[in-house]
């Protein structure tokens, strides 16, 4: 397994946010994690990213335990619910950020960023500041900024939750395209059923600090707790 998570546990004061989570993920696959607010899915991502520390368990990336590696040295990118573009940098510099801190040559940076802007259809916005572009464009910049450093693993924490329905659908399509193009390995957290089904090669459900990975999409749909059946019934009985 490319990513192996073993018996992760996390407690905040009296609340056991993550009880005991274990799973594996092959390279170039996206695992959707569906769950209600407060079920521990964001905490799980933060632990894998190194932003939070687990109480027990360990995370292996490509067979190597990354528990003692600082977040800036893990090369795992955590994408927040909001795009969080650096407000002091324009679109070009936001995407170039990861390359600049790695001290790449200016010509290389320019070439890579131009290519990324092209892939994300953001070329005409490259000189704009974050407050001058729309929510969907911001999210695309955030993707570009993460992808350009070619991270082995991307953690997406409800990245489209703040977007309107139409932009969200466009971004979901865009993600599918770039995931294939850049061979992304990712964990995609969402509380939206349809999004979980659309985005993941594999689908899981998190509840009360426990994670269950389903064998297939059919198994996910058939399980009562995921709420897919009640959603289907709702639309059928309308």
């Amino acid at each position: 397994m490319f990513l192996q998570v073993n018996h992760i546990q996390k407690k905040y004061k009296d609340k056991q946010v993550i009880q005991d989570v274990s799973f594996g993920l092959e390279a170039h696959q996206t695992l959707s994690i569906l769950g209600k607010s407060g079920c521990g899915k964001s905490t799980l991502l933060k632990i894998i990213a190194g932003i939070e520390e687990q109480d027990n368990g360990h995370v292996l990336l490509n067979g190597k335990n990354i528990g003692n590696i600082k977040s800036n040295e893990r090369n795992i990118v955590y994408l927040f619910q909001e795009p969080l573009l650096f407000p002091n940098l324009n679109v070009f510099e936001n995407i170039a950020f990861g390359l600049r801190i790695r001290k790449l040559a200016s010509a290389d940076i320019e070439q890579k960023v131009e290519e990324m802007l092209d892939s994300l259809e953001l070329k005409e916005h490259s000189k704009k500041m974050p407050h001058q572009i729309s929510g969907g464009q911001k999210q695309r910049v955030a993707f570009g900024r993460a992808l350009i450093i070619n991270p082995p693993l991307i953690l997406l924490d409800e990245p489209f939750s703040s977007l309107d329905v139409e932009t969200r659908a466009t971004m979901q399509q865009l993600y599918k395209t770039i995931a294939k193009k850049f061979k992304i390995t990712a964990l995609f957290v969402t509380h939206d059923l349809k999004e979980a089904l659309l985005m993941g090669n594999r689908i899981s459900y998190m509840d009360n600090g426990l994670l269950e990975i389903f064998e297939s999409k059919k198994a996910f749909i058939d399980a009562d707790k995921t709420g897919v059946k009640s959603e289907i019934n709702f639309w059928n009985n309308l």
Partner: peptide
Amino acid sequence: DYTKLANSLGAK
């Protein structure tokens, strides 16, 4: 949040 994000992108 920006600091955590910058660290996640590899910044010291």
